[in-house]
Amino acid sequence: MNARQSRLDALRALREREAKSVYGWVLSTDVPPGLQQSLQTAAAQGLVELADREVRAELSAYEGRPVLWAARLSPQGHDVLTYLHASPDPTPLSTPPAAEEQVIELRPAQMDALRVYTNLAPVLRVAPADGLVERVRTAHFDRPGNRWRMTLTPEQIESIAYAFHLRALSGSVAEANWFAREYGVAYRMDQATGRPEAVRSRSRTVCP
């Protein structure tokens, strides 16, 4: 088990014990030595609050015996578990893409630019393709390759091209040019409609 997972498990265990605690503090008698050591480490990271001398004295009076150690989640520790619970599990990419779907890989900075677009979905006039917001939220981060990976439909891929088109018009053409070269989708003006439209080709460079 890695350090991150061990820390999260310790925070979950503390939360469970804290919910059953009469005083809102978890005492050393309710914590195995290994867990106590993990909570000490989490306290050094600001995720656990350890009782000071005054609090321990109050707890000792309640218990009728010396209380030498007590802990509870800090506000930050509580928020970590709340955020973890709300975060979706990454979509596994172990199965082959469905028919017409394609695996898309984006660098972290490119993913950040895409997230700006998906976060604005409620107020955009040209909304992201159905399902793209969820695919972005559940994207898998390939740490060795330093890439975010998603399996997307053609419509969702065109939405990414549109997101990078907006970015090109507002300042940086790097993402749109890269996406056009890598995945063959770009936005350009359609003279017939007078609007920018998605164009598919294997190699093209776009300009704002």
Rank of each mutant, 00 (worst) to 15 (best):
E18G: 08
A19H: 06
A19G: 03
A19W: 11
V22M: 12
Y23F: 08
G24Q: 06
G24K: 02
W25Y: 09
W25V: 07
V26L: 04
V26H: 04
L27A: 06
L27N: 00
S28C: 04
S28L: 13
T29N: 07
D30W: 10
V31E: 06
V31Y: 01
P32Q: 07
P32S: 14
P33V: 15
G34P: 01
G34Y: 07
G34L: 12
L35N: 10
Q36Y: 01
Q37M: 13
S38G: 06
L39V: 08
Q40K: 08
Q40V: 04
A42M: 06
A43G: 05
A43F: 05
A44T: 10
A44Q: 13
A44W: 01
A44V: 05
A44R: 15
Q45C: 11
Q45K: 12
Q45D: 13
G46K: 04
G46L: 07
L47E: 08
E49F: 03
L50V: 11
A51D: 11
A51H: 09
D52S: 10
R53P: 00
R53V: 14
E54V: 07
E54D: 15
V55W: 03
R56L: 15
R56S: 04
R56A: 09
E58G: 01
E58N: 05
L59F: 01
L59N: 00
L59K: 09
S60A: 15
S60P: 02
Y62T: 13
Y62I: 05
G64A: 02
G64K: 03
R65K: 14
P66N: 07
V67D: 07
V67K: 06
V67F: 04
V67E: 14
V67L: 09
L68A: 13
W69C: 04
W69P: 01
W69E: 07
R72F: 04
P75T: 11
G77V: 13
G77P: 14
D79N: 13
D79F: 10
D79A: 15
V80F: 12
T82I: 14
Y83W: 03
L84I: 03
H85W: 05
A86T: 12
A86D: 15
S87Q: 12
S87W: 11
P88S: 06
P88Q: 14
D89I: 03
T91P: 00
P92S: 08
L93N: 12
T95V: 11
T95K: 09
P96G: 01
P96H: 00
P96D: 00
A98Q: 10
A99W: 03
A99Y: 08
A99R: 06
E101F: 02
E101P: 01
V103E: 09
I104Y: 08
E105T: 09
E105D: 01
R107C: 01
R107T: 10
